[in-house]
Design a protein around this nucleic acid. Structure first.
Lengths: 201, 201
DNA sequence: GCACAGATGTTGACAAGAGCCACATTCCGC
DNA sequence: GCGGAATGTGGCTCTTGTCAACATCTGTGC
């Protein structure tokens, strides 16, 4: 039943934790956050309903793992895009959100409640850093943080609204979201350049 | 038990539907979306756990009502702020989000899944219209929609990030969120003006 | 080799909620 | 007043989260 390479015997499981995370990730994709169930994940991993508690404190912890994993991937994607400029970072962000809507949603949902925990700080600061690096050059040093926040906000908001389908018919089709983001981002670019020379007190 | 004015007798209830919505709204505030339970709402309204089904198809429907109500209030707030300019619209948006985080979250969560239903279109288009009206003047007609989307995205994203506490320590204290939004919005304003090839009155 | 301690998995139980149904009560138009 | 339509009640099933007692496997020290 296990999709994992068995080590020696099929005794305990081999790597139940990873199997649970994988199953949960599949559930997240298929059914959304509310479809992620400890029992169903256990079922898919081929173990009893109590087994997951040997690896996670509870459902929340499993979801948290999914979110953490998501942030790691997002940051990796942003970092990979960074050398090609802020616009590509934005593209990568939008692409990530549109490609895995449930995961994206979960990440920020959970981050809200657990924003103070150490693990989260890393994930969020990683994301923030990616934006800061990509966009801070557009404004003077003292406005760098503001510029990064503005960029992040714009891209994040756009991603949300596109996910929710609010951004009208203007955005549809493969890659259209990213292209649309490009255009909007273009505006921001102007913005920050125009804004920089005359810092607001 | 009812906080409503009884009509004639304490027989059935008077207006259970409204009482349920009210109870659910309180639960949403107190415990977040997952804390909104049909049974608890029924309990607070002083009826049995089966009663709510006479007024709502199920939990989802009750949540939907909360979201719809939320959009109505949001649009009202935005419309009220509109005459005072786009910046005030943005302020109102941020204020709404920060004042009722759970409600705000719920609104967009549900809208995502039910984006195609008639009731939602109204709510969302109302919001979109408010932004369009407030910001389209900043760009030429052909860019009006884009300008509105950019403004909405920026404000929405900023609201989300502030809700989640990602926007660093820069934003804390009463009214700080709105002030911060002001600054960021200021940048957008520049942006749209710079983007429009020719100045727009 | 081997016994033991700890890790890992199983089972059974409990509480809570969603949803459904048959039945009871109340309202309202006639 | 009467009968049908609303509205509310209780009880039932199913699913899930969570816990605790018990079983099984593993690796370590001897």
């Amino acid at each position: 039943m296990s999709t994992l390479p068995r080590r020696k015997t099929a005794y305990h499981h081999g790597d139940l934790r990873a199997a649970l995370v994988q199953a949960a990730a599949a559930l997240l994709d298929e059914r959304g956050v509310q479809g992620v169930t400890l029992r169903e994940a256990a079922r898919r991993a081929g173990v009893s309903h109590g087994a997951p508690y040997r690896h996670f404190l509870g459902r929340e912890a499993l979801l948290t793992e999914l979110a953490r994993e998501g942030f790691a991937r997002l940051v990796a994607a942003l970092d990979a895009a960074a050398p090609r400029g802020g616009r590509e970072v934005a593209r990568a962000y939008i692409h990530f959100a549109l490609a895995q809507p449930h995961r994206f949603r979960l990440m920020f949902e959970l981050a809200a409640g657990a924003g103070r925990e150490a693990g989260w700080r890393d994930a969020l600061q990683g994301t923030a850093r990616a934006f800061a690096g990509a966009f801070s050059g557009l404004a003077e040093a003292r406005d760098a943080q503001r510029a990064a926040v503005a960029a992040w906000s714009l891209v994040h908001g756009l991603a949300q609204l596109m996910l929710d389908g609010h951004v009208g018919g203007a955005v549809s089709g493969e890659g259209a979201g990213e292209r649309f983001a490009d255009e909007v981002l273009g505006a921001l670019r102007f913005s920050l350049r125009a804004h920089a020379p005359r810092p607001v007190a």
